[in-house]
Write a protein that binds this DNA or RNA. Structure first.
Length: 757
DNA sequence: GAATGGTGTAGGTGA
DNA sequence: TACACCATTC
């Protein structure tokens, strides 16, 4: 279809935004109002109608996922792949700039990206050096990151009047120095440094100003002060800036995002064209009405009201659960009914406030053998063994990388302990040299005693020969050699804690990922490009085949997604809104926006639930329905009672609160819980996403043993568990059992003496 | 120097 | 509950 026809199919405000002439536009795009559609059509329109060259266009998003989706959808709109266009995340684009202009930015050519884990390790070392015992690395990291998000360096930190600020500022200074010395750049630094590039190198800035005549920004409400400054510096008087966002969906204030940027934008750029997209194409009228009513309780809004010409649909169901197990049981029963009616599992989503809540649902789904997928949590490149392997590669690429050096010098254990390391650190600090350099000098100087000298010599030898062997080799071979020669693989293959097997598989998967890696940055050597890729895209790659799974995720990660049926669970005071937000009006409003995001994810069916008693950190506590439930008009809600009781519209309830009956509940089962999500092995296939151990179709009961997958069993030594796999026949039958406290084990059925629990 | 047991603590998330 | 961290023992 021609672009003209495509544009005709847009609604009037969408069309107005897409074809807006002039310099700047701000699109207030409500949930489900076709935000990405507008962005991608705008780009196509710039290319085809305004005759913009693709290389004049820069489109910025926050997540890799959003960037990938945008690329894909642009590809569907324009006939030729738009070469030279920059579409990426703020960090990805800043990284690209710094690689291209490393010298101007004052970096070394081989600089490496320091992720948050590396960052905390480094800070921990600095705290030790400083002898501080009160601050936690995470606190310090948060401080440093917050300063960088505001565009401040250590020398800018105002220490007046704050006693602990002086310490924090000193740590920031030392942190800066350590990063400088090791050629390391953290996430905030990518942006900060590229912004300084604009300020300090006007010639360079003007070059990019001339080049990027069109800048488009997605999720503008989530920009922080630094990102906003970066944009303002890059946008010259002739740049057209097209920002899309929704202040009602601003949920990252705690991370430095400033919704105010949306209001500022109107003031700071002259003649901003403001377009409101208020027609919702996603949800039923009832769901929208509920969401509108909820968000109307916020005072700080630009103002916008979603409407839809779809029918009102069914009422929102409200379930008051006895406890979190009952809540999970209820949700899983609803999902069973949903799938039994022929609907796909993947169109049902369970959304919660915090990751810990996934557990009860995972257990209930596992028992009923329903396939599910948990988003979030640890990703591929975040796993310890993967990070170890990458650290070897980093050390090969950049000998000055002290963070990598510290990570692998004794991993796998090779007899180099804290004392030896302290010596190396001390020397490094005194001389200002990287630890690798200190090590080689120390070895040459011969001032080391027997055992330590041997261990250190062995390590130095290993890195040197790896560096030589990797020279000019394909990436896959480099990864292979690093994993093999370092002894990492062998180390994990010993499998001391039952999780070694999975780690070896992960390492193999890393080799696989290396073999599949395509280096798209032509000016970058393959290894550096791969390491940057690993840091910037922690493994949530696109392309996962997508088995039909129930979707479990936090409300934060649900932003931008939609599902036909949504379960918004754990809607309780103290949990949602979270305890730590209740006393602060601004934070409470952010929680409410998060709830708004949750409600507006649902297309057809929405179910809200809370528990009257919940176990948190091993302690059972009473709970109350969230104020957010009361803020949804009663006429949109129907309270669902337990099986055998009659559903009653909420409008007939006595005004005021909700009835809190202690109606019986499905007998609360034993307190058994399976190991956390990492226990299984079926979740390790492709790096991108983790899939539960239940992705295989459930196996039929084993006729010989009378045991089946999913059965709860008891073992004399390991306690209670659930069978996750069966293999073999008769006396040779082996069963895999996931124990509550002992991880997952394969057992010979004959020997194990399992009894049904 | 490495392995093991006891204690304290706990948000959401992206790059 | 579950994990990280520290202290203790081998």
């Amino acid at each position: 279809m021609s672009l003209e026809r495509q544009i005709e199919r847009l609604n009037p405000p969408q069309r107005e935004a897409v074809t807006a002439p002039g310099q700047t536009a701000l699109v207030l795009a409500g949930a489900g109002s076709g935000k990405t559609r507008v962005l991608t059509h705008r780009i196509a329109w710039l290319i085809e109608v305004e005759r913009a060259a693709p290389l004049e266009i820069l489109a910025v998003t926050f997540t890799n996922k959003a960037a990938a989706e945008m690329r894909e959808r642009i590809g569907q709109l324009v006939p030729l792949p738009p070469r030279g266009m920059w579409v990426g995340t703020f960090h990805g684009i800043a990284h690209r700039l710094l690689r291209a202009h490393w010298r101007d930015a004052g970096l070394s050519e081989t600089f490496q990206i320091l992720d948050s884990d590396d960052q905390q390790r480094l800070i921990k070392r600095l705290l030790k050096e400083l002898g501080d015992e009160t601050l936690k690395p995470a606190q310090v990291a948060a401080f440093i990151n917050a300063r960088k998000d505001e565009g401040q360096r250590a020398r800018h930190v105002d220490t007046q009047g704050f006693a602990d600020r002086a310490v924090l500022a000193e740590l920031y200074r030392r942190y800066e120095a350590a990063c400088e010395r090791g050629g390391m750049v953290d996430f905030g630094e990518l942006l900060l440094r590229s912004n300084e590039l604009w300020v300090q190198q006007p010639v360079l800035r003007d070059h990019y100003r001339r080049r990027f005549r069109h800048i488009l920004v997605d999720e503008f409400q989530d920009t922080n002060a630094l990102q906003y400054a970066w944009l303002r510096n890059l946008a010259g008087p002739d740049t057209s800036l097209f920002a899309v966002g929704d202040d009602d969906q601003a949920i990252y204030g705690w991370r430095g995002a400033k919704v105010e940027n949306m209001r500022e934008f109107e003031r700071q750029f002259p003649n901003v064209k403001v377009v409101r997209l208020e027609q919702n194409y996603r949800s039923t009228g009832t769901i929208l009405a509920a969401a509108n009513a909820l968000i109307a309780h916020n005072r700080e809004r630009l103002g916008k009201n979603l409407w839809s010409d779809a029918g009102s649909g069914e009422p929102i169901r409200l379930y008051a659960a006895y406890n979190e197990q009952d809540e999970a049981r209820f949700v899983v029963e609803q999902i069973e009914a949903w799938t039994a009616a022929g609907n796909p599992r993947s169109e049902a989503a369970i959304l919660y406030r915090s990751n810990a809540q996934s557990r009860a649902f995972e257990e209930a789904l596992m028992v009923r053998r329903i396939k599910y997928r948990v988003y979030g949590g640890q990703r591929f490149f975040d796993r310890a063994e993967i990070r170890d392997a990458l650290a070897y590669l980093r050390l090969i690429a950049n000998p000055a990388d002290d963070t990598a050096f510290e990570r692998v010098i004794n991993q796998p254990p090779r007899g180099i302990g804290d004392k030896t390391l302290d010596t190396l650190r001390g020397e490094a600090r005194a001389s200002g040299l990287p630890m690798w350099e200190v090590l080689t000098r120390l070895l040459q100087g011969g001032g080391l005693t027997g055992r330590t000298a041997a261990a250190l010599g062995g390590f130095a030898q290993l890195i040197q020969s790896l560096r030589a062997a990797c020279q000019g080799q394909p990436l896959m071979d480099q990864a292979l050699m690093a994993i093999r020669d370092s002894g990492l693989k062998e180390h994990h293959a010993k499998d001391v804690d039952g999780r070694g097997e999975g780690r070896v598989e992960n390492l193999d998967e890393l080799v696989n990922a290396a073999s599949l890696f395509v280096n798209e940055e032509e000016d970058l050597d393959e290894l550096t490009a791969f390491l940057s890729h690993a840091a910037l895209e922690a493994g949530d790659a696109q392309g996962e085949a997508g088995a039909d799974c129930v979707q479990l995720m936090t409300l934060h990660s649900a932003k931008g997604l939609e599902f036909r049926q949504v379960f918004l669970v754990g809607v309780e005071e103290g949990l949602f809104p979270s305890q730590r937000s209740i006393d602060d009006p601004a934070r409470l409003e952010e929680e409410r926006r998060l709830c708004y995001v949750g409600l507006t994810r649902a297309r057809e069916r929405l179910c809200v639930s809370y528990a009257e008693s919940r176990r948190i950190h091993g302690e059972t506590r009473p709970a109350m329905a969230s104020r957010f439930i009361e803020e949804i008009p009663a006429e949109h809600l129907t309270e669902v009672r337990l099986r055998g009781t009659v559903d009653r519209p909420m409008s007939t309830r006595p005004s005021g609160g909700f009835e809190r009956g202690s109606y019986g509940h499905g007998g609360s089962r034993s307190d058994w819980s399976p190991g956390r999500r990492d226990g299984g092995r079926a979740d390790l296939q492709p790096p991108p996403r983790r899939v539960s151990a239940w992705n295989d179709p459930p196996k039929a009961p084993d006729s010989d043993s009378g045991l089946w997958v999913g059965q709860r069993v008891r073992h004399g030594k390991f306690g209670e568990g659930v069978i996750t796999d069966l293999e073999g026949q008769g006396p040779r039958t082996r069963v895999q059992v996931k124990f509550a406290g002992a991880g997952s084990k394969w057992l010979m059925l004959d020997m194990a003496g399992l009894t049904p629990a």
